[in-house]
Amino acid sequence: MHIAEIDNLSLNGDSILHKAGTVSKVVLTVLILISMIISKDLYRLTGLISIVLVLFVVGKIPIVQIGHLALYPALFSVFFAVLSAQQGWISGIVVIFKAVGAALTMLLLITTTPYVDVFSVFSLFMPGLIVDIFLMTYRSFFIIADKVHNLMTSIRLKGGYKPWQLLLNFKTIASMLGTLIIQSFEMSERMYRIYELRGYTGRIPIRTDLKPASQTDYWLCLAGMIILTGTVIPWKI
């Protein structure tokens, strides 16, 4: 999933985009995404993808390190591209470009903004419970991934994994998952008690980043609006 890699990039990055406010980055992302979705010609999409790639450079994000994540939607769009290719090969490429462009735009947001900040913007329009689940999921993911790694190592060391013995391996994996869930459940019970001691009332207080907008924030919002306008207006070259 590369969550740890992306987390590292978003937290330790030091660029104009990393320093910009979360709301302005979300606005820019949404406007570029809308532009990608409504674009129907190859030139506009190529332009939009180029803008996103330039933003990757501005954000000092190593595209080689995370660019392969955009290949996943590209793979799935190939089948729709084949379908659209009945109207000409350009239609097929448009479908692939839309998918890759949208994925790159989302990647730009999550590699330049820490997840807590992204989720805090969600709290502006989503119920608090959902935002809490987002936070708990993200936190639990790393704990569980670590536990899975340790359990796999001990299973291998104790001879619990035998190649070509499928049923035995399934049983071992199911027991491992069962142990993992029970350990996680007990951990969640401890977590609940700790939260209660710290004054938890059924809502995790996270502050939405609504600090006074900087000049960069205005520029990002303006750039988003220009991109959307540029996509909507007809260009006669």
Binding site: M1, M136, T137, A145, V148, I181, F185, M187, E196
Partner: peptide, 28 residues
């Protein structure tokens, strides 16, 4: 909206930590 509206605060408080874990397992 209806799920959130019909869940009591006490129920949410108890289940929330395990909900995050269940979501992480699904994610994996």
């Amino acid at each position: 909206y209806f799920v959130v509206k019909r869940s009591s605060n006490e129920q949410i408080k108890r289940v929330l930590p395990f909900t995050g874990i269940a979501a992480a397992l699904m994610l994996i």
